[in-house]
Design a protein around this nucleic acid. Structure first.
Length: 438
RNA sequence: GCAGAGGUGGCAGAGUGGUCGAAUGCGCACGACUCGAAAUCGUGUUAUGUAGGAAUACAUACGGAGGUUCGAAUCCUCUCCUCUGCGCCA
């Protein structure tokens, strides 16, 4: 039996409109997956035929069992034995069919997992991240009238970081934040938390470790291998983002329609191996094994997800603007879009040192793909049917990476760093933080 | 961590090898009664898959995985979770 969930897209879409699915694959420049569509149609046919055959055989088995029961009660032992042998033969056939079904279903599922979610009509077509499209900019991206040092040098001048000790205690990719910088780090998170609460989101502190069953629900094996730290001797993994435990919370549940939309904002530390393409930065805090993040999650009805998508990314923009950090929005093109996503947009902050923008957040609408995979449904009162919800997620803010933008943009000629109004109440009223004297 | 108890439908809770997709109660929906409501009575009310235009039929599911059996909610093995007590800790 091929369950409706655990897949990214509805198999019915392939049955009824394979060309749409093919076109979607072409748009994402994944042409090597095109043959999968026909393979799926073939396997699906086989699978259904096998299921029908199996169902008939199992119906027969039930029939035999009832008959034997009746005969035994009547004391007709010999007749019962005859039926038993018939049933045994039938059971052999069942075993054979079930083995075949399992084989076909497994391959079918494997293929289905490769089929990407249907992307939004307005996703720009492009091969890779070089073809992402700038959407808008907010606040003027100004160059500084002086040379802006590398963020690590700013951090050091403020007495705000100790990487040497971190390397000794934990290795490369870890950091100690100190003094005003550490306070600033917390201030940003606390401000972001309150900002989202003011937007009506429910604040949530989730588990920082999750079971493997949840991990495999929220990511592929390759991603898991490249990102997740495993706890020795336990079936637990450190989360790479609070999205993992936040979405995992709704795994295999049928939500109450009246609860939707669920709008949540969560805080957590995030742990990542960063085993992939880029690796850990030698110097600095751009890419590290441990960071903290305020996240937002929405679980909603299908017709609400477009609305929430626009809301979510605009909240991040608003937050950065309120801290007087210039940002731009960058629309993710088809080829750069992960298979689970319907559309996605990066929020990038301005770096006066590099004179370009860099990613500080990412907003995604996964439509029903993630919910389908995890079995997140709600009962639709209009139709009385259980339907998959839509899920979205977005970064509110993720220091310490975000601190790079903060420090570069608010650095003054004298080496001090300006604290915007909105953060001051979390910084003991300070307007500036100053370099420490050596 | 140790010991005991337990995991069954939206909830509570029966059921210890066949007549059990599952008593009963609550909840919910519809109907009757009523000027209206409460109470009462009646009917209905799990999910997923397959076939079908549909009504419906069949299959599967009693935490999960495996086993025994013609037949498993029920017996066996492993595993996960929850509760209670003790221990240990912020």
């Amino acid at each position: 039996m091929l369950a409706g969930c655990n897949l990214m897209i509805d198999i019915d879409l392939i049955r009824t409109n394979p060309e749409l699915v093919r076109e979607n694959i072409r748009k994402k420049f994944q042409d090597k997956k095109l043959p999968l569509v026909d393979e799926i149609l073939e396997l699906d046919g086989q699978n259904r035929a096998l299921q029908r055959e199996g169902d008939e055989r199992r119906a027969k088995r039930n029939e035999y069992a009832k008959k034997i029961g009746a005969l035994m009660r009547e004391g007709k032992k010999e007749e019962a034995e005859e039926v038993k042998s018939l049933s045994k033969q039938n059971n052999d056939a069942i075993a054979e069919i079930e083995a075949k079904t399992a084989e076909v279903a497994e391959q079918l599922k494997k293929d289905m997992m490769m089929i990407p979610n249907i992307i939004a009509d307005d996703v720009p077509i492009g091969r890779d991240d070089s073809q992402n499209v700038q959407w808008n900019t907010y606040l003027e991206a100004k160059e500084k009238p002086f040379e802006v040092p590398y963020h690590l040098d700013i951090l050091e001048s403020l007495g705000g970081i100790d990487l040497d000790s971190a390397r000794r205690t934990s290795g490369n990719g870890f950091y100690y934040l100190l003094g005003d910088v550490a306070r600033l780090h917390s201030a940003v998170l606390t401000y972001a938390r309150d900002f989202m609460i003011d937007k009506g989101f429910t604040y949530c502190i989730p588990p920082y470790m999750i079971r493997s069953s949840v991990v495999s629900g929220v990511m592929s094996f390759e991603e898991m291998d490249g990102m997740m730290y495993k706890i020795e001797g336990e079936d637990l993994y450190l989360i790479g983002t609070s999205e993992h435990s936040m979405i995992g919370r709704f795994m295999n549940t049928t939500l109450d329609e009246a609860q939707l939309p669920l709008t949540l904002t969560s805080y957590s530390p995030c742990f990542r191996k960063e085993k992939g393409a880029h690796g850990i930065e030698e110097r600095g805090i751009y890419r590290i094994h441990q960071f903290e993040k305020q996240e937002m999650i929405v679980v909603c009805k299908p017709d609400q997800s477009d609305y929430w998508y626009e809301k979510l990314w605009s909240y991040t923009v608003e937050l950065f603007v309120s801290m007087q950090i210039p940002v731009r929005t960058l629309v993710c093109c088809s080829g750069d879009l992960a298979d689970l996503k319907y559309k996605s947009l990066d929020v990038e902050a301005w770096s006066p040192r590099q004179k370009k923008y860099f990613e500080v957040g990412s907003c995604s609408n996964l439509t029903d793909a993630q919910a389908r995979r995890l079995g997140i449904r709600y009962k639709d009162s209009a139709t009385g049917k259980n339907v998959f919800a839509h899920t979205l997620n977005n970064t509110v803010v993720a220091p310490p990476r975000m601190l790079i933008a903060f420090l570069e943009n608010h650095l003054q000629a004298d080496g001090s760093v300006f604290i915007p109004e909105v953060l001051r109440k979390y910084m003991g009223g300070k307007e500036y933080i100053y370099p420490v004297k050596k």
